[in-house]
Computed example of a mutant assay.
Amino acid sequence: MTTRPDILCIGSVLWDVIGRSDRHMKHGADVPGHITRLPGGVALNIAMTLARFDLTPALLSVVGRDPEGEELVTACERLGLITDHLYRSDDLPTDQYMAVEGANGLIAAIADAHSLEQAGDKILRPLITGPLGFVEAPFPGPVALDGNLTESLLDQIVHHPAFSQADLRIAPASPGKAERLLPFIRAGHGVLYVNLEEAGLLCQTEFESAPQAGAALVERGAARALVTDGGNVTCDATRDGILAERPPEVMVTRVTGAGDTFMAAHIASELRGADRPTALHRALATAAAYVAGGT
Rank of each mutant, 00 (worst) to 15 (best):
C76L: 12
L59E: 05
E206F: 05
E249Q: 15
L86T: 05
R254N: 14
Y290D: 00
E219Q: 14
V291P: 01
R272Y: 13
T3A: 14
Q212F: 04
A178R: 04
G273A: 09
I157F: 04
L86N: 00
P211N: 10
A216K: 14
A199H: 05
G133V: 05
C235K: 00
G133Q: 06
Q212E: 15
N195R: 06
K177F: 04
C203G: 01
G141P: 01
A51V: 01
Q156S: 13
L201A: 09
P277D: 11
E179M: 10
A137H: 14
V13K: 02
M263F: 03
G28K: 11
V233T: 14
P142R: 09
E206Y: 07
G19N: 03
M1C: 10
M263P: 00
V194S: 05
G230L: 01
E179V: 09
E219V: 06
D121M: 03
D95Y: 05
G147C: 10
L192G: 00
L182P: 02
P67Q: 12
T49H: 06
A51Q: 10
R272N: 14
I157Y: 04
R276E: 14
Q204W: 07
G33E: 06
H159R: 15
A29F: 11
F139A: 03
E136M: 05
M251H: 12
A223W: 04
D30E: 09
R246V: 14
R180H: 13
R282Q: 15
T74G: 07
A265N: 00
V135L: 08
G230Y: 06
E208W: 04
R239L: 09
P172I: 04
H24V: 10
V62F: 06
V63Q: 03
L196N: 02
L154C: 11
V42F: 03
P5D: 11
S61R: 04
D90G: 14
